[in-house]
Amino acid sequence: MQLFPCPFCGLRNEREFHYMAEPGKFRPDTSSQISAEDWAAYLYDTRNEKGRVREIWMHQTCRELFVMERDSVTMNVLGSTSLRASAGEAAE
């Protein structure tokens, strides 16, 4: 049972969190033509890396959306940043 750092609340039990997505993917502007490949990449492509990863999580109890950096092998948490405070940074 892990402890995750919500940027707003602080450390909380992992049961309160929900994995959302990998960061760095932007919704294509659907008012213009989007190729099937680009849309499929947006919908389905995931890196699913081993080791150091960046992920978007939601702290469900306070609904904070944030980027968490952690190690998917050791389960060590390396840091978290609110998606709001760092909209640019979260996008890489």
Binding site: F8, C9, G10, R12, N13, E16, Q60, T61
Partner: peptide
Amino acid sequence: GAEISDALPSRSAVRQAFGLE
């Protein structure tokens, strides 16, 4: 019902306890 202690302060008062929000 919850992993809670004064040593783990939290800005928000909402949490999961006894499986409920």
